[in-house]
């Protein structure tokens, strides 16, 4: 028998509500359970507003969750104080979508990369500099880049700096929020190869957030599909792509354009647009848009149901 893989990041019932005037609440994230195993890549896919970024921020307590818990390397982060959180950021780090917005324009690359070493590991300058040079080489830059400012770098180089900063304190978990969304396709491929190489060398676990299905298929071992603040389907990447079960997943996969001649696909169309996340009814999130809707769909929210082989779907109708 195979040993259970070691879970490095686990969320249970992670929820984030934003009050929006009166007693109304915007449900950005509702009851999300996720397990991320050592060294694996789990992708969170979904369209804008589905709660992917909120999930990442809550998992790191960059915003305070309204409910639920997060275990990082087995330890609950719910009651960590400032000091505990500073230590936590030595174990889990984040790479953001837009390296323009996430790098301080007045800091040199050296200052950017030294900062986590100083804050989380309290390294003296000489050690930090040695590590900074090592990091530049790891991410495919040169020590000369340490003296540059972000605006002197290309988009791809800036994203490499973002990765170097995230890896500086040797975390074993990296959350990547749309890391290639602002890059041209030719640079995208290089960035993904870099991320794969670093993962293998450093045994990193990636929580990979993306709306780009091609990138997800290329990177992820497992996928969780999000819609309106919740997971509607999860499973191994090959299974979800080859046999999508949830109507939303089917619509999403069949909508993605393919850069090939003569590919004709059967598109599953959803009616209308994503509804408001404010005070959603206790019903399936896809009610009103779903071509397979049944009367029972409006009476309660279906939980994730095991469909075998680690594949789960929040729709009883497709399993019936």
């Amino acid at each position: 028998m195979r040993a259970e893989p070691y879970v490095v990041l686990r969320t249970s019932g992670l929820t984030k509500l934003y009050p929006v005037g009166g007693s109304r609440r915007l449900v950005a994230l509702s009851g999300v359970d996720i397990d991320l195993a050592e060294g694996e890549t789990l992708a969170l896919v979904g369209e804008s507003g589905s709660g992917k970024s909120t999930f990442a921020r809550c998992a790191l307590r960059l915003v305070e969750p309204s409910d639920g818990d997060v275990l990082i390397n087995g330890r609950s982060i719910r009651s960590l104080g400032a000091l505990g959180l500073a230590e936590l950021y030595g174990e889990v780090q984040m790479v953001f979508q837009d390296p323009n917005a996430s790098l301080n324009p007045r800091m040199t690359v050296r200052q950017v990369v030294h900062e986590p070493l100083r804050l989380h590991l309290r390294m003296p300058f000489a050690k930090r500099e040695k590590r900074a040079i090592e990091l530049m080489e790891m991410v495919g830059l040169t020590p000369a880049h340490l003296d540059r400012y972000p605006h002197e770098l290309s988009g791809g180089q800036r994203q490499r700096v973002g990765i170097a900063r995230a890896l500086a304190a040797e975390p074993n978990i990296v959350i990547l929020d749309e890391p290639t969304a602002s890059l041209d396709v030719s640079v995208r491929g290089q960035m993904l190869e870099l991320l794969k190489r670093l993962q293998a060398e450093l045994k990193l676990a990636y929580l990979f957030i993306s709306h780009d299905l091609q990138v997800v298929r290329h990177m992820a071992d497992r996928v969780a599909v999000m819609y309106l603040g919740g997971i509607v389907e999860s499973g191994r990447t090959e299974d979800v792509f080859a046999r999508p079960l949830h109507p939303y997943t089917r619509a999403l996969l069949s909508a993605a354009p393919v850069a090939r001649w003569g590919v004709k696909r059967q598109r599953l169309r959803l009616a209308g647009e994503i509804p408001s996340p404010i005070d959603p009814p206790d019903a399936c999130r896809l009610v009103g848009r779903c071509p397979m809707q049944q009367p029972a769909c409006t009476t309660r929210r279906p939980p994730l149901i095991d469909a075998g082989g680690g594949h789960a779907v929040a729709c009883p109708v497709v399993l019936a």
Binding site: G189, Q214, R217, H218, A259, R260, W261, V263
Partner: peptide, 26 residues
């Protein structure tokens, strides 16, 4: 898409396909 003549076009296509094979897409 099927007979690109220039190397740049070929590279752009390959980058856009990101290792997906036609079977994966069908």
């Amino acid at each position: 898409f099927t007979r690109p003549r220039q190397d740049y076009t070929r590279r752009l296509l390959a980058a856009s396909q990101l290792g997906e094979t036609p079977e994966m897409i069908e």
